[in-house]
Design a binder for these strands. Structure first.
Lengths: 335, 335
DNA sequence: TTGTAGGCGTTATCAT
DNA sequence: ATGATAACGCCTACAA
């Protein structure tokens, strides 16, 4: 494998010193128009690409960001992809590349990457309430952004979707439609406060809004939502009441349960969901839904991260929240 | 941001020369048990991590592999994720990291990454019949593996799923079930030979097997499959015949079309698909299907790639094919 | 505006 | 079995 041209080769061809080539690239000092032209021509002629390793060594900047991804997780793959794509694009704009690290490597992965100076910053996805990586990050003196909110956010930079508002919006939509009770198919009330606290935040949003509207709520755990099936079998709208349905986890299972009983969303009951745009639109009846917006989250992460990098700070405490919005579709047909 | 300990620090603490530390890491010369112990203790005590850039510069090995990914493409996100996860895991086993490059960067992305020696090899996904990146790779003297098969594979290392066998298996299954004609909802006959030639290979598999079984086939282009809807409306089983359905692209649209007419796969018609396992199982009636196996492809790619890297070859011409298998589910209920 | 030179942290070739 | 030491390719004071 050929070694490829170096800045020295460029310099020779352009008839300048090697440092001039370097300064042409960095723009850190003024160059005469003539010199600039000659150097750029030489670079083009040789198809010169600076050696990333040498650059990292001398400049102590890798122009690489690591992103710690929870592959085999509860996350939806489409969401993950969208997030990553958007992030890579944003990174490229700043002339950064993206290194992939699996969450399975755990805390050691973070240590390895940061210790080896393979990157200038890291993004850690799907953070849990008690996340060891948060503790590590605090001691690291290295810019890390967390997606998700650990219990103790001291000294941490976090970004997350507004799950609480999501829960609230869904409840209010069903309330506005005249529903008098709610059936929630999701992570379930007993998951509140466990691992990922977005579950808890969503539940809080639902509960708060339901109380405000005096709507009784019954929760059913997906995917083994026998209770949910029982509700459907018992009749959704007993004695003049009207049951609105909220789906979070186990969407496809829930939709199947409805279909098997001949229940059509929007006709026989109002159904809303917390899911991706794609999921909402793929259903037999497209769902009115609040969609977590991975691209918005991604942009916010990128923005914040590059601010940190440019500032040279290790981290800048604070939780950024990406707003939630509801999109109406056919599953809440009547007005 | 602290500079972190160097091998020099380790050497000092262990009371040895810096080169000894290096040799302890590489194992390229024998070390006395005593020295080994002292060096390892020092490394642990300082939490030493070798500087990746310096290592790449001196050793001309990055221990990084770039993977060029088609984010916003026809690929299913779940497939992509599975592929990538499996690949990252395999890479880690060989002590390699993975750099993400978007296909949107096109040919320049490949050039940039390889030129800058940011990686020791690259994987290019979703290769088209006439792929510029293939031409570049041939001139590159750099190990590249392609997923997908360009028209001219001279000097190229390619891996792909056996789409032809997939088509054949699906047809044979429907034939065995007593169907007398086929309706295919997919990329359509006119897509054959265009961009991604797996479409053509799949079509060839279908056509070949259909001819062997003397089954007439009508093709319908997804997603605007009006023709498909017409077939459903015209009645699937005219005068004693029986129409088997094959779905490829536009699966959800096709399933919806059936559902809207009250047609249940496995009861009213045999339905088979080329899709992911997840898709096959998510449907209201789980589908008998041939599933592209991203993890199998990934493993084959990794295996081949590390063989190349270890051998120091730029590439090793040849097309590896990942076998196709059919899994029976409820959508072909009757025997 | 431009050139010179030292150093970044490894690897690998000499020696010993 | 181990120590010096010269690259590796680039960045950046320091000079001019």
């Amino acid at each position: 494998m050929g070694r490829g041209p170096t800045s020295k080769d460029v310099a020779r061809l352009a008839g300048v010193s090697q440092s001039t080539v370097s300064y042409v690239m960095s723009g850190k000092r003024s160059i005469s128009a003539e010199t600039l032209r000659r150097v750029e021509e030489a670079m083009a002629a040789l198809n010169y690409q600076p050696h990333a390793g040498a650059r990292a060594l001398a400049g102590s900047r890798t122009n690489t960001i690591a992103i710690v991804m929870p592959f085999a997780s509860a996350y939806d793959a489409g969401q993950l992809m969208a997030f990553v794509e958007e992030f890579v694009l944003a990174a490229r704009v700043h002339d950064y590349d993206v290194l992939l690290v699996t969450a399975e490597e755990g805390i050691e992965g973070l240590r390895r990457i940061t210790g080896g100076r393979q990157c200038d910053a890291a993004v850690v996805m799907q953070v849990t309430a008690q996340d060891q990586r948060a503790d590590l990050a605090r001691t690291l003196d290295f810019p890390v952004i967390f997606i998700g909110v650990p219990e103790d956010t001291t000294g941490l930079a976090c970004v997350d979707f507004d799950f609480e508002a999501a829960g609230r919006l869904l409840v209010e939509e069903l309330a506005d439609l005249g529903n008098t009770r709610l059936s929630v198919l999701g992570w379930g009330a007993d998951s509140v406060g466990r691992d990922y606290n977005y579950i808890g935040r969503f539940a809080r949003g639902v509960t708060g809004a339901a109380e405000a509207h005096r709507l009784p709520v019954d929760w059913h755990l997906a995917p083994a939502a026998d209770g949910f099936a029982a509700v459907l079998d018992a009749g959704l709208h007993p004695d003049g009441g009207r049951t609105g349905i909220i789906m979070t986890a186990g969407l496809s299972g829930g939709m199947r349960a409805l279909a098997l009983r001949g229940l059509v969303p929007g006709r026989d009951a109002d159904v809303v969901a917390l899911c991706t745009e794609a999921e909402a639109e793929e259903q037999v009846v497209p769902l009115t839904a609040v969609s977590t917006q991975p691209r918005d989250v991604s942009r916010m992460v990128a923005e914040r991260l590059f601010a940190l990098i440019d500032a040279g700070c290790p981290a800048q405490e604070g939780v950024d929240i990406v707003p939630a919005t509801l999109v109406r579709r056919a599953s809440t047909g009547r007005a």
